[in-house]
């Protein structure tokens, strides 16, 4: 049972990572690590910036 929970937890983390659901948390971690002196963007601001950037290039195929 404990194993099953562990697996479920890993699947959930994978799902969040693959869908971009945890993007803001990853951004915060990266930001605190590399630019600790600059205040980070808030959640809304971060997603506004990311979406514009992500859709300006070929990211889907036939």
């Amino acid at each position: 049972m404990a194993r099953l929970w562990k697996f479920a937890g890993r699947f959930w983390r994978w799902l969040r990572a693959i869908s971009g659901d945890d993007a803001y948390e990853r951004y915060l971690a990266h930001h605190h690590h590399h630019h600790p002196d600059v205040p980070p963007l808030d959640r809304g601001g971060f997603f506004r910036r990311e979406q514009e950037r992500r859709w300006g290039k070929i990211n889907r195929c036939c």
Partner: peptide
């Protein structure tokens, strides 16, 4: 995803 719950991709999906 833009105004109500920014970036909550999974629940929005």
């Amino acid at each position: 995803m833009r105004y109500l719950r920014p970036g909550r991709v999974l629940e929005a999906t």
